[in-house]
């Protein structure tokens, strides 16, 4: 076996030993298989389709029923634009959050159940590399497939309907809020994956946070300021160039970012102590 003698061994004991290799593997699981384009079609089709419905089908129906909001918005085109933008940034933000949870619920759980994690960690791999490679690769998918691609179609449709470019600054602002919201749920899913070895509790907590959050906040108002539950509304207002009421934008944005960072830190600490 002379070959191994010619191979250059990795010697350094870096804090992120094995990260590049694991990150490459995670990327290959998405970009090297049909998963990415199936999800790209699904999310672009779903969100883009909803936007098209709001732009072209809803306004004439609303006008026909004498909906006063059509006139208030300044006509069918303006009403369609308003509705499309609201649907994309409010409903879309919630849909993407649910999509993030469903798509990445098993990113750690599956490998733990199958024994793959154990096999990987028996190699010279730092445990934090394992967690961070999953976070980074998942984030890339969320940003590209679940957010950027549908957003590109949405921006195109809005601009075509408006007859000019939709204000890019406002649109990007709304998109930024959507990203913060998605990252919150991605990191929540990840940290839950380090605590649970089965899906039901993970899904229950994460989906409960998305779907039950607003309900809970309607009883305990201060929760809105320390959770991402207000972000869909905030994103819609920002994208529409409308003023965001005082205290609505920054507290929920900042606390969502802080929560996300905390989730990652807790996931790293928990995984470091996990026994396989």
């Amino acid at each position: 076996m002379g070959t191994s003698l010619d191979l250059e061994r990795i010697k350094e004991r870096r804090a992120l030993r094995g990260f590049t290799n694991l990150f490459r593997k995670e990327n290959q699981a998405w970009w090297g298989t049909r998963r990415w384009w199936i999800n790209a079609i699904l999310w672009s089709g779903m969100l883009g389709g909803l936007v098209l419905v709001m732009l072209y089908i809803l306004p004439p129906l609303a006008a026909a029923t004498g909906d006063p909001n059509v006139a208030e918005a300044g006509g069918q085109a303006a009403f369609g634009l308003l509705m499309a933008q609201q649907v994309f940034f409010e409903l879309g933000t919630l849909a993407v959050a649910i999509g993030v949870i469903v798509l990445f619920q098993d990113t750690i759980v599956n490998e733990r159940q199958s024994g793959l994690t154990e096999w990987l960690l028996a190699k010279p791999v730092a445990r934090r590399s394992y967690v961070l490679s999953k976070l980074c690769a998942s984030l890339l998918v969320v940003l590209a497939v679940l957010i950027a691609l549908p957003a590109l179609f949405t921006y195109m449709f809005l601009s075509v309907r408006a007859g000019s470019f939709f204000p890019p600054g406002a649109f990007l602002g709304g998109l930024g809020v959507m990203v913060v919201n998605s990252v919150f749920y991605l990191t929540l899913t990840l940290v839950l994956g380090t605590f649970f070895t089965t899906r039901p509790p993970l899904l229950g907590i994460a989906l409960g946070a998305v779907l039950g959050g607003n309900l809970l906040a309607s009883f305990i108002k201060p929760l809105l300021y320390v959770t991402p539950w207000m972000l869909p509304k905030v994103g819609s207002l920002v994208a529409g160039g409308q003023p965001v009421p005082d205290g609505m934008l920054w507290p929920s944005l900042i606390t969502s970012v802080v929560w996300s960072i905390l989730f990652v830190l807790v996931a790293l600490m928990k995984f470091e102590r996990t026994e396989f």
Partner: peptide, 23 residues
């Protein structure tokens, strides 16, 4: 356990990359 979407050779290369820099 193996990375199921990889071939046998790809699994070996993946594994080798934890230990060797190259070539």
């Amino acid at each position: 356990r193996f990375i199921e979407y990889m071939t046998a050779r790809e699994n070996l290369i993946f594994s080798a990359n934890f230990y060797f820099r190259g070539p």
